[in-house]
Design a protein around this nucleic acid. Structure first.
Length: 1020
RNA sequence: GCCCUGGUGGUGGAAUUGGUAGACACGCAGGACUUAAAAUCCUGUAUUCAUUGCGAAUGUGCGGGUUCAAGUCCCGCCCGGGGUACCA
């Protein structure tokens, strides 16, 4: 009987569905295991071959754990809120609910096709009010909490209020936005509104005026991790900085714990490192500078800076403020006001992208001076873009000798550079700076051409710090600063609070309404606050978010609800808990469920969520733990990042058709020039080769004449000829072409290109020309990159499954290489896995050993007793598979199956005693084949419920070992010796062997190394 | 720039604790079966030299080192991939 994947897979799918085979219960005496895939966003394109990589791995692991006797929670659901569905809704008017439903139905069917063992009775969807009710509930808890630094826990806001009432701000050590001090009496005298504002300074979910990443094209605010290179991660639209009222979560309160607890979890080093960098802890101190203000009527101000290098305080020669710093306006004397304001305005209004692109130094002198707290010197105060408003105090002390940015700034504006740390001799030499006899360096004063920011060296020119090493000097300087009351030791984090409001429709409503201008939370009992219907998904004419369109969007018909919605990551920050008890309408998850399932044992997903989702995920877990709602502080014990399966895209190069011609005084575009396709090779040649350039110019001029006689006349009349800017690569456009259409040689008949362009670009074929005009096929330029619809390089699993079956697809993706590795998709080699499955199948059919036709073969396994050799092969494989799955080394496990099969095949083994346990091992990789053969073996229950075969060491016991014998480390021959020999006996045996004599000849033996059961090495 | 990764045959990759480098698979070459094809099976396949057989030398990005022994450990470079960037 032939192996027909489509038939057996269909049958198995139906069987599993009918028997509800993957359902798991919460009341089990078995040990639990929780395997989770990262929450997918169901996009319109469906799954491509890259998506299932992690799902296959987690599925194999889940099935394996089930066979090993665990009660395995392996759920799937949908991160259903999000921008693409809403953008689509804006374009088509179709409600995001509908699009989302369609998309996830497609995902679901693809997942079923691949045989994933999800318990679909636990399916969740973030856009379902039954789910987001609890997201809102957690938000309200965050809103009603402050962070007590003393207990290192979130606490109800009421405890803070009662402290305010008793003691004001004294004795409070809380995470806050800005420093506040008031007495209990003052607190009591505050208006309701004022009290509300003050509390927002402490709440974990709060509303404040904040600089945000505003994306005009998307009409919304984005979190830091949603902005890449100054543009939005989704869509690539420019992002501006804007000051606006904004809901945020005080994740910064958890900085320390988020950082420290990384050491307790088994996550990849690269993710942990990315989080450490993102959190960005730095130790230092604050330091105050008073302002030397000649305008005596003006208020006295102080500037506080944050520095990690107080040891360099004597090297301060200027102070720089961020353009956004409020002090700029206050300290600038009238004489400088105009210029400073102009500079500040320009700097503030730049987009993130412009700021990042701008590499040159910019800044302006404010006209004001500060007093150096130790030397009493007057030092100028500048404003500079390189100082960030959001970090530290938005002000830095300029130490140009020992900070590269300060150095660049000082050099550019001709400010003093004062060296205060000795440069180590080796470095000074490397820099060609003369070293004087007494180990002082010639450039120790003014002429430092490069900054030295290293932390090795002793302080010089630094009064009480002189002679101290940097490390000691830092301590000493902080001591002195604290003693003189100029500042105090401080730890700063790079991590910012997370913007939580989105000016969009398709997200969870924020359960807040505004009563007399005071943001007021809904009561828990009033949840869920359900997303209202709106006539359009766009902002209102006055620029308010879409929710403002809903006339009913009022609390008790009276007070306006909050118009912004939650960001995409809200639901995914806690969803893993909901799977444990997905239907509960009394609690987010029951205590019993949490106590049984606990946190995720194995979490598999892409590395792109390193600083976004995975940080919020940990943050919310810690918060819920603070309230005793869950008994653990980390959401996932082990995290594995699967590599990306990239696509290969084919690029076609064409000459930029926007050729401008100066007509009179206006630049006109010549639209009528044909589209000219050239290969990458030709394009590269044109850039450098003048002969080729001339040829192309002639060619273009001919095209004019041929395709546009009027233009040809113009060209002739004006004696116009096209010039090519050899440096300007912009001259060429590249455009992706569907990769599936192209042969392995990367070439294609030109007619095909023309046909495709007609269809997709709607350009008539008379307008398409190739250069040079030979008859050879067009050769493409290939690139390996992310699979994406827009690049026409997407390969779906559907095609692969149709051709080879899901089992082959599953095993092949695993066979490609280590799970964590990224690799381009290629089906080269898939036949190896397919052949394996076919061969495995044939082992179960009677006449397999005759080479005759396969038509008449019947299912047959022998009941004979297995031989020791057969048992050895089986148990070697059981051991290997078990170990490999445990360490997620699926590629080597697949190899092990192949090796096992080859060996059994050589022995012509078709014994049940061997094949049946092997089938169970294979069932987590190829569940369909396994189910079919399992049934044929006469079992009535599913292979899913089988027990993983027990490994018996006794079958593997050997009494001899084949020693590789090497001379000077080079292996020369093998020698089989009994295992029970002593080192001395082994040495004797080896030296007396014929082979050894041949190699030894007369050479004297210096030493013989014998490692029992490993190797023998003879040194001559 | 900084941080994290990785670099092994024609290709994907294996070598888990320093102990036979190249498992397994693809591809390729040759052969069997067949009228033929598909399917299946067998043999070979790191490189170079030698081939009459035995063989020999080289070899895990490059240059050093430690060791009886290095793909694996140490030092210094080069290249690819990913992350991040005025974070004071």
């Amino acid at each position: 009987m032939e192996y027909k994947p489509d038939e057996i897979e269909k049958a198995a799918r139906e069987k599993w569905a009918k028997e509800d085979i993957y359902k798991v219960t919460n009341d089990s005496s078995l040990p639990k295991y929780y395997v989770l895939d990262m929450f997918p966003y169901p996009s319109g394109a469906g799954l491509h071959v890259g998506h299932p990589l992690g799902y296959i791995a987690s599925d194999i692991f889940s099935r394996f754990k089930r066979l090993k006797g665990f009660n395995v929670l392996h759920p799937m659901g949908w991160d259903a809120f999000g921008l693409p569905a809403e953008q689509y809704a804006i374009q088509t008017g179709q409600h995001p609910t509908i699009t989302t439903e369609q998309n996830l139905a497609r995902y679901r069917s693809q997942m079923d096709m691949l045989g994933f063992s999800y318990d679909w009775s636990r399916e969740i969807k973030t856009s379902d009010p039954k789910f987001y009710r609890w997201t809102q509930w957690i938000f309200l808890k965050l809103f009603g909490s402050w962070y007590n630094n003393k207990t290192q826990k979130a606490e109800p806001i009421e405890t803070l209020i009662s402290q305010f009432e008793k003691l004001g701000t004294t004795e409070i050590d809380a995470a806050y936005g800005e420093e506040m001090t008031f007495s209990a009496d003052e607190w009591k005298s505050f208006s309701e509104k004022k009290k509300s504002d003050v509390l927002f300074n402490y709440r974990l979910a709060y509303l404040s005026e904040a600089w945000v990443n505003w994306c005009p094209a998307l009409g919304t605010v984005l979190a830091n991790d949603e902005v890449k290179d100054g543009v939005s991660e989704r869509g690539g639209y420019p992002v501006e900085r804007k000051l606006m009222p904004q809901w945020s979560l005080r994740i910064t309160a958890y900085s320390d714990r988020l950082l420290n607890d990384l050491d307790t979890i088994d996550w990849s080093e690269s993710i942990k490192e990315a989080q450490r960098n993102w959190i960005g802890r730095s130790e230092g101190c604050s330091l105050q500078f008073t302002i030397n203000n000649p305008d005596s009527y003006r208020e006295q101000f102080t500037i506080t800076v944050f520095t990690t290098r107080p040891d360099t305080v004597f090297g301060v020669t200027f102070i720089t403020l961020a353009p956004e710093n409020e002090l700029v306006n206050k300290i600038t004397p009238a004489s400088h006001k105009a210029q400073v304001e102009e500079y500040v305005n320009i700097a503030k209004n730049k987009t993130e992208r412009e700021r990042q692109a701008e590499k040159k130094v910019s800044g302006i002198f404010t006209g004001a001076y500060a007093i150096h707290p130790f030397t009493g010197n007057k030092i100028p105060i500048w404003v500079g873009e390189y100082v960030l408003a959001g970090y530290g105090t938005g002000a830095v002390m300029g130490v140009p000798a020992h900070d590269s940015r300060d150095h660049a700034f000082a050099k550019h504006f001709g400010l003093d550079i004062k060296q205060v740390i000795e440069i180590p001799e080796s470095l000074a030499t490397a820099r060609n700076e003369a070293v004087l006899p007494d180990n002082k360096i010639a450039s120790q004063s003014l002429a430092m051409t490069e900054p030295y920011d290293g932390k090795n060296g002793k302080c010089i020119n630094s009064d009480f710090l002189n002679g101290l090493d940097v490390k000691d000097a830092i301590k000493r300087a902080i001591e002195e600063i604290e003693k003189r009351g100029l500042g105090k030791g401080k730890i700063n984090f790079r991590l910012r609070d997370a913007a939580f409001g989105r000016q969009r429709y398709w997200g969870e409503p924020i359960p807040i309404y505004y009563k007399d201008g005071i943001p007021t939370p809904l009561d828990e009992s009033e949840l869920p606050l359900v997303l209202p219907e709106v006539d359009k998904f766009q902002p209102t004419e006055t620029g308010e978010p879409p929710l403002a369109r809903a006339t009913t969007w009022k609390y008790k018909g009276q007070y306006n609800y909050e118009y912004t919605t939650m960001p995409g990551w809200a639901g995914s920050s806690w969803y893993y808990l909901r799977y444990e008890d997905p239907k509960n309408d009394k609690e987010f998850t029951s205590k019993d469920a949490i106590n049984y399932w606990q946190n995720v044992d194995l979490y598999i997903g892409g590395a792109e969520h390193a600083t976004g989702h995975l940080l919020y995920f940990r943050f919310w877990t810690k918060f819920l733990n603070d309230y005793g709602l869950i008994p653990f502080t980390e959401p996932a014990k082990k995290l594995v990042n699967q590599g990306m399966i990239q696509g290969v895209s084919a690029y076609i190069t064409r000459i930029n058709t926007e050729i401008f011609v100066l007509s009179g005084s206006i630049l006109r575009t010549l639209f009528t020039i044909p589209i000219i396709y050239i290969t990458k090779e030709v394009a590269d040649k044109i850039v450098t080769d003048e002969g080729m350039q001339n040829e192309l110019v002639d060619f273009l001029n001919n095209c004019f004449r041929k395709f546009n006689p009027r233009m040809a006349a113009f060209v002739r009349d004006q004696d116009y000829s096209i010039k090519i800017d050899a440096r300007g690569r912009n001259w060429f456009n590249t455009r992706p072409f569907p990769i599936q259409e192209i042969s392995a040689n990367n070439d294609i008949e030109k007619e095909k290109i023309i046909e495709w362009i007609n269809n997709y670009d709607r350009i008539e074929n008379t307008q398409i020309v190739f250069f040079p005009e030979d008859n050879k096929p067009y050769v493409f330029n290939r690139e390996v990159e992310k699979m994406s619809k827009s690049k026409w390089n997407v390969v779906t699993p559907d095609d692969v499954v149709a051709q080879y079956g899901a089992d082959t697809m599953r095993m092949y993706e695993m066979f490609l290489g280590p799970l964590e590795l990224s690799k381009p998709w290629s089906t080269q080699g898939i036949s190896g896995v397919y052949n394996f499955l076919k061969k495995f199948w044939r082992m179960f059919f009677s006449s397999q050993w005759s080479v005759a036709s396969s038509q008449s073969e019947e299912f047959y396994v022998s009941g004979e007793k297995a031989t020791p050799a057969e048992l050895k092969i089986l148990h070697k494989t059981i051991k290997k598979i078990d170990e490999d799955i445990e360490r997620l080394s699926f590629n080597t496990a697949v190899s092990a199956f192949m090796i096992c099969l080859n060996e059994l095949y050589d022995l012509k083994c078709n014994k049940r005693e061997i094949l049946e346990p092997l089938l169970i091992c294979l069932s987590s990789f190829a569940p369909f084949v396994a189910e079919e053969l399992w049934t044929k073996l006469g079992h009535t229950s599913s292979v899913v419920k089988a027990k993983f075969p027990k490994f018996e060491e006794s079958y593997l016991v050997e009494n001899t070992f084949s020693y590789p014998v090497s001379f000077n480390g080079k292996t020369r021959f093998m020698l089989e010796l009994p295992l029970n020999l002593s080192k001395e006996q082994i040495e004797k045996e080896v030296l007396s062997s014929e082979d050894a004599k041949k190699w030894l000849k007369e050479a004297p033996i210096k030493k013989v190394i014998v490692v029992p059961n490993k190797i023998v090495n003879i040194v001559v």
